[in-house]
């Protein structure tokens, strides 16, 4: 076990996994909320865009999205997300492209979680908001979304846990997160493979188990009483 930790940079890989999770979670929460607002909007064209976005990206395999971030976005279209003169350009660029891919994909699930939260709100709430003269934007911000988020804590938590584990797909474009360690161990030291899989597996449980507990607790605390 000690050789596994000394020969491979597992702690730094764990840290990369955590950073991927945090940045992608924030990104998909923001993007997913915007898409959800599109899907709930009274404007037909916005609804169309929102619905199309969800249908396209939710139905595309994550691996394909992550790979296209690298192959299409960067290699074909030349979109680089890091300073190309920097020493660590390849690593930083791949890391950021992975965040883009993870964000785009998980935003669809965030959007649908928020919409399910909106469905928990009686129609009368939005009617009352409109009746006192709030505009669509104001009634979203003040009345609908705050209640929708509270009703969506549990499905949002599911998405966060799935996202945490899905960061492992980033290895396909060379991001040195936890599953990249497995790849390296497989190549160099097949004898330690069982141990490496166990360690990485345990790390993910350590990351996601508290999330599940927190989600349940928060969900109950912020629930809107009717």
């Amino acid at each position: 076990m000690s050789s596994l930790f000394s020969d491979y940079d597992i702690w730094s890989a764990l840290w990369t996994t955590i950073k991927l999770t945090v940045f992608s979670a924030i990104g998909s929460l923001v993007l997913g909320t915007i898409v959800a607002i599109f899907r709930l909007s009274p404007v037909g064209i916005l609804r169309f865009f929102g619905t199309s976005y969800v249908n396209i990206f939710r139905n595309t395999p994550l691996t394909l999205i992550i790979l296209s971030c690298s192959f299409v976005l960067y290699i074909q279209l030349g979109v680089a997300l890091a300073d190309s003169n920097a020493q660590d350009f390849a690593a930083v660029n791949a890391f950021r492209l992975a965040i883009v891919g993870l964000t785009v994909y998980h935003a669809t699930y965030v959007c649908e979680a928020i919409r399910s939260g909106v469905n928990t709100i009686p129609l009368g709430q939005a009617e009352a908001a409109r009746s006192i003269g709030l505009t669509f934007g104001q009634s979203m911000r003040e009345v609908v979304l705050p209640q929708a988020f509270r009703g969506a804590v549990v499905p949002l938590g599911n998405t966060l846990i799935a996202l945490t584990k899905n960061t492992t797909v980033a290895v396909t474009i060379g991001v040195a997160e936890l599953s990249a360690v497995l790849k390296t161990v497989t190549e160099r030291d097949p004898g330690s493979l069982n141990l490496a899989f166990l360690v990485v597996g345990v790390f993910f449980v350590i990351l996601t188990l508290p999330m599940g507990l927190a989600v349940g607790w928060i969900g109950q605390r912020v629930a809107v009483k009717r």
Binding site: G124, E127, A128, S131, I132, V143, P146, K225
Partner: peptide, 17 residues
């Protein structure tokens, strides 16, 4: 215009949060 027209509903519809 709606802001000048008060509305009271059968189911109250107070903002629950």
């Amino acid at each position: 215009l709606r802001s000048d027209v008060g509305m009271v509903f059968q189911s109250f519809n107070l903002f629950a949060h």
